[in-house]
Design a protein around this nucleic acid. Structure first.
Length: 435
RNA sequence: UCCUCGGUAGCUCAAUGGUAGAGCAUUCGGCUGUUAACCGAAGGGUUCCUGGUUCGAGUCCAGGCCGAGGAGCCA
């Protein structure tokens, strides 16, 4: 009978049975008449043991000549062993080489250290390393937890377009593309379309890539990043503050529940994640400025926070902090203003702990038709491009609110990474379009 | 866009203005329990590009290209 193909993560259930593993050679250690090939299959890593006296000579020679990342089908019997990191070793009886990486062009990424530029040039191969696979796993869990969160609360996923005719928040940071005989822009937010969707289904969210042509070269910027954006009809600022903190808390809870092994590979201090429970800390902008000034920041009332300011604020708390009521002048034209203090926007930014910066931004939308039209003009936006958006205020207008959460910054924070370039499979950054 | 730092073997890095080196990777040899194994040997170079100073430049000077970190802006 042909041995069953088994994934390495399920190997414990097959101790003593002959199984087949399909994967790649991760590393090979030799000790005379013993070979210790390390196999990986995308679900885990297991060390094989090849004893010269126990296998046909050609099998021994075949394994001995294997190069890193050669693809193989391995037949053997898993055996519990104290010395193995995963608890099991594979006593190898047969190895079929699907493709042997030629020694004259060896796999470029060795188990030793490499520089950032080299790894980024080989991103398509770098993804195979244990650390990158752990990040991909956590990213997957964060996205799944996000979608489950909204789906379980009756939200309808409504996809918003990637090609857009005009800007959401000014044109300086848009990527312009040719669209037959006219110009189009890559979306920087699904926000305006979400508002239309919310009037159709009540509670909606969109999830997709967004694009910003900012010439930012820092550890928290990508030109292409993924964002989830909920929008809720009849909601006010406080409603979306609660929604945002419950979302983030449930994501962290799911990752802690299902991705402990990945967090261990990443050497993440999980104690810092375990304290992330609702309610989060809350601050009004006025009070945040006071705290910053006491801590020696140069910030003046009316200015937006710099990266250091965000770090200082986040360090005051053991969980994310929600900062509300920013000056309206630093926020987008569609933000509602505080009726009691019209110079303030009914908005919220969530700052992640440990200096990971803003992961959520949102608030209550401006509902008044006349005021919205005035701001469109004030921003120098072409009214004809926004007629459809103004329609939302003409027909059954209601208060509504929502926010956007950047997936990559959430992944960077939860994984404890020092750069967002590792949070997305193929990062797009200033000066980086390949591979 | 601005500021700072860097570019030498496939990779990570050394090298007073005076013969370009090490570790890893690759190839060959040794080892029956290795954990980024270890031990021995071999092959491997347009020192980012252009120009300049000098008897002589990887090293000094000028310009350019590429990258990294930070600022501003943002999620």
């Amino acid at each position: 009978m042909e041995a069953a193909v088994v994934e390495i993560r399920d190997i414990a259930g097959h101790a003593g049975q002959e199984v087949v593993i399909q994967g790649w050679l991760y590393n090979l250690r030799e000790s005379g008449k013993l070979l210790f090939p390390l196999f990986r299959d995308g679900t885990g890593v297991i060390q094989g043991v090849v004893v010269k006296a126990a296998v046909p000579p050609e099998v021994f020679e075949r394994v001995k000549g294997l190069t890193q990342e050669s693809s193989v089908r391995v037949t053997g019997k898993p055996r519990a062993d104290q010395r193995a990191p995963g608890g099991f070793e594979l006593d190898v009886s047969e190895v079929e080489v699907i493709q042997r990486v030629p020694p004259e062009h060896p796999y470029p990424i060795t188990p030793k250290e490499h520089g950032v530029e080299f790894l980024m040039d080989h991103r398509h191969l770098w993804l195979r390393s244990a650390r990158q696979r752990a990040i991909l796993g956590v990213r997957h869990e964060i996205i799944k937890a996000t979608r489950d969160f909204f789906d379980n609360r009756g939200f309808t996923l409504v996809d918003t377009p990637i090609f857009t005719p005009a800007a959401c928040e000014g044109t300086t940071t848009l990527f312009e593309v040719g669209y037959f005989d006219e110009k189009a822009y890559l979306t920087q937010s699904g926000q305006l379309y979400n508002e239309a969707a919310a009037m159709a289904v009540g509670k909606t969210y969109c999830f997709g890539p967004t694009f910003r042509a900012e010439k930012s070269k820092t550890r928290r910027h990508l030109t292409e990043f993924w964002m989830v954006e909920p929008e809720v009809a009849f909601a006010h600022l406080d409603d979306v503050c609660k929604l945002a903190e419950e979302l983030v808390a449930s994501i962290v809870e799911k990752v802690l529940e299902k991705r402990r092994p990945e967090l261990k590979v990443l050497e993440r201090d999980v104690a810092k994640l375990e304290s992330v429970k609702v309610p989060f800390a809350r601050l009004r902008y006025d009070d945040a400025v006071k705290i910053l000034q006491e801590k020696g920041s140069e910030i003046q009332w009316g200015g937006d926070f710099g990266a250091t300011d965000e770090t200082i604020l986040s360090e005051q708390f053991d969980r994310p902090v929600l900062v509300t009521h920013y000056p309206a002048q630093v926020k987008a034209f569609y933000m509602a203003t505080d009726p009691e203090r019209p110079e303030l926007a009914l908005c919220v930014d969530m700052l992640a702990p440990e200096g990971y910066g803003e992961i959520v931004g949102g608030g209550e939308r401006l509902a008044d038709y006349d005021e919205l039209l005035r701001r469109v003009h004030h921003e120098g936006l072409p009214q004809e491009s926004f007629e459809w958006y103004l329609d939302l205020r003409r027909y059954g207008n209601v208060p509504h609110a929502g926010f956007g959460m950047g997936i990559e910054r959430a992944v960077a924070w939860i994984c404890g990474l020092d750069h967002v370039r590792e949070t997305i499979p193929f990062p797009r950054m200033l000066y980086r379009l390949k591979p």
